[in-house]
Amino acid sequence: MHVRLATNQDKDKWNNFVTNSPQGSFMQSWEWGETQLAFGLPVWRLVVEDEGALLGVALVIERSVLFGRCWLYVPQGPLYGAEPRVWRLLNDKLRELGGGQKAIFVRCDPVIEGANGNDVLLLQSGWQKSEREVQPRHTLVIDLGLSEIELLGQMHQKTRYNIRLAQRKGVTVRFSGEASDIDTFLKLTREVEGRGLFHYHPANYYRTMQEVLGPVGLLEIGVAEKDGIVLAVHILVKYGERMTYAHGASRADRRELMGPNLLQWESIRRAQEQGYKAYDLFGVAADGSESDHPWAGITRFKLGFGGQRIDYIGAYDLVLDQSFYAIYNMARRMRGVLR
């Protein structure tokens, strides 16, 4: 058993491993690495193998900060099947890679549910809980093995009513992978940001996602409209057995048309029709959060569609430079200038 850097010849084997892993995520896919490269970020792909069989993988992305330093990030990974030997090889390689890049720390947020003791390998290997989450720690996942009647039945009554209301009012939904609909999405994001509700990535982030993931069928855009007026837009990522509602935006006016409700329902139906087993609503506030939580509104909206709440262990850091790590965290807390 050994660890090495993946080559382009490993692409199919890599994706097969990720899609068959219970903890697999599109953020550990080969194509997500290509997306990061298109953003201009350095990327490494680590594989653990034994006699040609993959046993673990880690997609690693370098993120620059001030003073010529960086940190390394393993989004929703690494994948090691809870096998301690595989984890140790990946951990040692991540430490070595971080040292070679003069990284302040390495951060990971594996898709591991947050039951007691599930972070033991991380803690025993010198990792510590991060002050900052990068990916949502809490989510809702809808089981697409249910019938349409069962899916509707698990929704809140008000959500079902709003879906029917949108249908009666003539709201329509369409799906595409076209770049023009990324522009449609971006127009709505500017309106949402103007209301002070959310902050989005730069426009090039979404355009690059579409350019890399769209042509290979991993990204689709859903649009709800009424009489040519766009009401809501979703960016959906499709990978393995799961469709993920990755990004969304809706207009402030015309709320009475309930476009976001119908668009979410049609996205769920589309995922089921295309054979996916799960629909991930990707990010809600923690159970019991206060009503003034920044995600309170979107959480209420998502909870209306039912699904199973899943809580992950969250982000952990392997600190390689204690002094700069303290400075980094202090700067983020005080000024929010480092990301």
Rank of each mutant, 00 (worst) to 15 (best):
R137E: 04
L122V: 05
C108T: 08
L79Y: 02
H199T: 15
Q135C: 11
Y312T: 02
L218R: 10
K13Y: 05
L140M: 15
L263G: 00
R333F: 04
L123E: 08
A246E: 08
S25A: 12
S147E: 08
P22I: 15
E113Q: 08
V233G: 04
R63L: 08
V47N: 00
P136Q: 05
V65M: 09
A271T: 01
M27K: 11
I112N: 08
L94V: 09
Y73L: 05
L263T: 01
I268G: 12
V134M: 14
M330W: 15
V319A: 07
H138D: 15
I163L: 06
L90V: 01
G68I: 12
G177L: 00
E241H: 15
H201E: 14
Q128R: 11
T7S: 12
Q9N: 15
Q272H: 09
P22A: 14
P84G: 15
T189V: 05
D227Q: 15
Y279P: 07
A296Y: 10
W127N: 01
T139I: 09
G240Y: 02
Y161F: 14
L94T: 06
E51W: 03
G304E: 06
L318W: 08
G117L: 13
V284D: 06
G194C: 02
Y245E: 04
L146C: 14
H247S: 08
W30R: 06
A232S: 12
Y239R: 03
S289W: 14
V86P: 00
G170C: 10
Y276K: 12
W295H: 06
S25L: 04
A224W: 09
F17T: 01
A115E: 14
H2V: 11
S323G: 13
D50M: 10
I313R: 10
L55V: 13
Y325P: 03
V65P: 00
G68Y: 09
N8P: 01
D181T: 02
D10V: 09
S180H: 04
V18A: 06
L79F: 02
F282C: 10
V86A: 02
P260N: 12
Y161I: 10
S147V: 06
N261V: 10
L59S: 02
R242K: 15
G52M: 10
Q28M: 01
Q264D: 03
E51G: 10
R4K: 11
M330E: 15
L94C: 13
I235Q: 05
G177T: 00
E266C: 05
G228D: 13
G228L: 10
N116E: 13
N162C: 07
L151M: 09
E49Y: 09
R339H: 13
M258L: 07
L219I: 00
G275H: 11
L55C: 15
K277T: 04
L213K: 12
T35R: 01
L140N: 02
L37R: 14
L320I: 13
W295A: 11
Y73M: 03
V43D: 00
E131T: 11
A6Y: 03
H293C: 06
R45M: 00
Y205S: 09
G153D: 08
D109M: 03
